[in-house]
Design a protein around this nucleic acid. Structure first.
Lengths: 160, 160
DNA sequence: TTATTTAATGATAATAATTATCATTAAATA
DNA sequence: TATTTAATGATAATTATTATCATTAAATAA
C-alpha cells in the first residue's frame, strides 16, 4: 500500500523537488507529531534526535517548501513564532483552531463549518476564496469541566 | 458631545492608566487611519509627523496597552509584522479580513457572519468562545473586475 | 564509467521585529 | 514643596527568520 510519505514524495517530484534524507526526516517528524502545532525550532530539535547532522536552515527551507506545495500550513497564533501543521490529505481547506485563553491548549476542528459563510462572502464581496484561517479564542472543554467540578465541590462544602 | 478619544480616555482611566500626550497622539493616528492595518513602524512614522519627540518603544508600549484593553486588535497576516486595528466601538467581536493573494489588498468585513458557526462550536466542542479571527485568502473584487475586463477585451480582439 | 552541471545542505552571518534596560522626565500624591 | 510613582526616550539585547557561501550529493552528459 502506498504510504503518506510515498504520496508526499510524488508531490515533491511532481514539482521537480527530491525527497532528500533531510526532507524525509522532517516530514516524518511532522507525521509523528500531528496536532502538535510545532514551531520550526521544535521540528529542528525533533529531527536532530534521529538525524543529528541536520541544520536549522534546512528545516526552515523544508518547511517553506512544504508550505508552498500546500502539504503543510504555516500558522500564527500571535506569539511571534510560526507553526507548521500537516494539511489533512485531500482537504481543500485549512482546518480551524480553538485556542484556550486559560491553559493555552490548541485544539483542531477538521470539519469545514464555513460553507455557508463562504457562499455569502463570495457573492456579497465578489471575493474568490482560495483558503481561509479561522481561530476561536476562549475556554476549552477541559477548563470548562474543571470549573464545573470546582463549582460542584464548593456547593457541597456550603451544604455541610 | 463625547468624542471617541474621550471614551478611550475613560477606558484608560478605568484601568488606572493615563492618556499621556504620546498615547493620545498614537490613538489619533489610529483613528485617522482606520481600515489601514498599520504596523508598529507605520504608526511610529505617522505619529512622528505630529509629535517628533516620540520614541518607537513608546509606540510599541502604547499599542500593547491598547491591545490589552481591547481597544485595538493585534493581527497578523503571516508577513512577519504585527498590525493594529481599532476595534469597532461596541463590537464584541473582531471583524474579518479579505486578503487578496494577487494585489495584497486587505479589505474588512464588519458583519458578524459567524453566529451560526459559533453556536455549533460552543455546543459540539464545549468551547466558550470569547473572540475569533477569520481571514479569507483569495482574489478581491478589484482583481476580479480587472480580469473580467481583460477577458472581454480579448474576446473583442478575437472577433475582429 | 567519468566529467560536469545542478540542487541541496550546513554553518554561520545578516536582518528585522520586538522586548528589556535604565537613566531621565512628568505627573500624582503626601 | 518634597517624594513617590508612572511613563518616556534612547538604545542594547533578544529572537525568529532569511541570506550567503563554501561544500557535498545527485543527476545528467560525454
Amino acid at each position: 500500500m502506498e504510504s503518506r510519505i510515498d504520496r508526499i514524495k510524488k508531490q515533491l517530484h511532481g514539482a521537480s523537488y527530491k525527497l532528500t534524507p533531510q526532507r524525509e526526516a522532517t516530514v516524518r517528524v511532522l507525521l509523528e507529531n500531528e496536532e502538535d502545532h510545532l514551531s520550526a525550532e521544535d521540528v529542528y530539535l525533533l529531527v536532530k534526535e534521529k538525524a543529528p547532522e541536520i541544520g536549522l536552515a534546512t528545516v526552515y527551507r523544508t518547511l517553506e517548501l512544504l508550505t508552498e506545495l500546500k502539504i503543510v500550513d504555516k500558522i500564527n497564533f500571535g506569539d511571534g513564532v510560526s507553526r507548521y501543521d500537516l494539511r489533512q490529505e485531500g482537504a481543500a481547506h485549512f482546518h480551524h483552531h480553538l485556542v484556550c485563553i486559560e491553559c493555552g491548549a490548541v485544539d483542531e476542528i477538521q470539519e469545514d463549518l464555513l460553507e455557508d459563510v463562504e457562499a455569502v462572502v463570495e457573492k456579497r464581496w465578489n471575493f474568490q476564496i482560495k483558503d481561509h484561517r479561522l481561530t476561536f479564542h476562549g475556554i476549552c472543554w477541559r477548563c470548562n469541566e474543571k470549573h464545573a467540578a470546582e463549582e460542584k465541590n464548593k456547593e457541597e462544602k456550603n451544604r455541610e
